[in-house]
Amino acid sequence: MSCFLTNSSLGKKLVMSVTGCFLVLFILFHMSMNITLLFSPEAYNMVCEFLGANWYALVGTVILVAGIAIHFIYALMLTVDNYRARGKQRYAVTVKEKGVEWASKNMLLLGWIIIGGLALHLIHFWSKMQLVEIMGSHYFTPEIDGTATVINPANGALLVAYTFSKWYNVLIYILWLAALWFHLTHGVWSMFQSVGWANDTWYPRLKCIAKIVATLVLLGFAVVLILMYLNSGDIIAQMSHWVPEA
């Protein structure tokens, strides 16, 4: 019991499944947070204040980092095992087997894209919000349109509007979300299979649920990006002088 999670193939898959499930739930939580931006930038900033450097947000961050790290490290471990198991000599002719999804064979590649996007995302937002607070600062001074602007780290709405006023950021994030869509179309049904909660009756249903979840995530995040791009001028003007209520 103590070690099958690290030394058994099925134990390792269980870890992938459980951490994957946790990350899907986090993504849905993050998406619902973002959607508040569509209704009110002030409400979004309240969420940002709530999730600053408070103890519960820090505990949540540590658990989240652990979840991502374990999911990724196990993916690498499984890939190394699988590479060895495949052997040095490969087939000269390969085909796409009937009913096999492209995403299912490229989960690690998609994972790398997602990690790359995540690094950029952390630089764009986390390093300017929670990290600033962790460092004990109450403001930071980004250069918005060439001028140093003093803003509060909880002023997420301004940061989001500014970041997505650039078309190339919108494009990069949409490509990132597309990789996530493919990853989830396989990952979501696969996590049920790995814990054994699947059968022939449920495969079409689980695969349908996976596509719905993946599409919800894609649309939920993308709609915020696009509306931020379209309304960035208004929101930057509205939120430039925002200060948190005492």
């Binding site: 193939s9 390792k12 898959k13 499984l78 095992d81 699988n82 060895r84 198991a85 495949r86 087997e97 009937k98 009913g99 096999v100 999804e101 299912s104 064979k105 989960m107 396989h186 049904w189 696969s190 299979q193 790995s194």
Partner: peptide
Amino acid sequence: GFGNCTNTGACQAE
């Protein structure tokens, strides 16, 4: 030394 299943479903197809 067999590998880990990643649920591609290629086995059942073949």
